[in-house]
Design a binder for these strands. Structure first.
Lengths: 140, 140
DNA sequence: AATGTTGTTGCAAGAATTTGCAATAAGGAC
DNA sequence: GTCCTTATTGCAAATTCTTGCAACAACATT
C-alpha cells in the first residue's frame, strides 16, 4: 500500500487535502524511521521535491502531528523533533551522552488512568520524553 | 533570606559565580511565580538590569536549569519555558483551550521507579508536561 | 587591598522558526 | 472535462534563538 493511498483518506475525511509536499514529508519520515529535526526533514525532502520551502515544512509537520500522522517529541535541548506515527511509545534520553531508548506505552498506561482520575482531564495521550542517566554513563 | 544569600552558595560550591545577571533572572522568575518564555524573561529582566542581553538570558536560563535553580517545561507549541524551582510538580495542558493544572510529583513517583527498573537508566527526574482535554472543554 | 585565574558577559553575526498575504492547486460539483 | 471553492503553498520579512570570541568581572589567594 502506497503512502498516498494510506494517508490521503485520513486527511480528506477531515476536509483536508493530500499534496505533494505532505506526501514527500511523510515519505521522508517513513523512510527514515526515527525522529528528525524540522530542518533535517527539509533538507531531505527538498531533494525529493525541489522548490519545497522551509515554512511549508514547519507548518506541515505541525499539521501532521495535530492529525496524528506524525508524532512530535523533544530532543535533549528542548527542540522539537518528528517521527512517523507508529507503535505508541515514549523515549528516555541520557542527560549526559544523549543515548536514547524507547519505552512501550503499556508501562505508562496505568499512570495515564491515575492522572485522568486525579485531574478530570481526559484523552491524555502525550508522547513523553524522559531524561535520566544511561547505564553506560553511570559507570563513569 | 535574600535571593543572593540563598542561591550564591549553591553556585559557588560548584565553582560557579553569582552575578547581577543571574540574580536578576532568578528574581524575575521568583517574582513571577509561573513559567515564562525566554523572551519574556528577557523583557522583564532588562528593565531591572539595563544592558542585559538576550544571549545572556538564554544561556543563563539553561545554566540555571542544569543546576536545579530553575525548571524547564514545554508550552503547547513545544517551546521551552522556565519557572523558579519549587515543589516538584508536573503539568497537564488542555489541548483545546490551553488551560493548565499542576500535578504533584508523588503521582509519578511509582512510574519513575518502574521506568528505572525496566530501562536501566537512573536519576530520571524529568519535569513532564502532559496534554489532554480539560473538564470544561469536554462539555462542548 | 592588590593580584591572578577563569567563569561570564556583551557584541555581532548567523541560523532556525514564525507570520502575513497573494498566488496556486486539490478535489467536489456539475 | 470544466468550473468553483477554499485549503495550501511560496515568497519575503520579521522574530526568536544560537554561536564565536574578545573584553570583563567574581572571588579565591596572598
Amino acid at each position: 500500500m502506497t503512502c498516498s493511498a494510506r494517508y490521503a483518506p485520513q486527511l480528506r475525511a477531515r476536509g483536508f487535502r493530500m499534496t505533494p509536499q505532505r506526501l514527500t514529508i511523510l515519505h521522508v519520515l517513513h523512510h527514515e524511521g526515527t525522529h528528525l529535526s524540522p530542518l533535517n526533514v527539509f533538507k531531505k525532502a527538498v531533494q525529493e521535491l525541489p522548490g519545497l520551502t522551509e515554512p511549508t515544512v514547519y507548518r506541515t509537520l505541525e499539521f501532521l502531528a495535530q492529525n496524528g500522522l506524525v508524532r512530535s517529541s523533544h530532543d535533549g535541548s528542548g527542540h522539537l523533533t518528528y517521527e512517523i506515527a507508529a507503535a505508541d511509545h515514549h523515549h528516555i534520553v541520557c542527560r549526559i551522552c544523549k543515548a536514547e531508548i524507547e519505552v512501550e506505552h503499556s508501562l505508562l498506561a496505568p499512570l495515564y488512568q491515575t492522572l485522568e482520575a486525579a485531574s478530570g482531564f481526559t484523552n491524555i495521550d502525550s508522547h513523553v520524553t524522559f531524561f535520566g542517566v544511561c547505564p553506560n554513563c553511570q559507570r563513569q
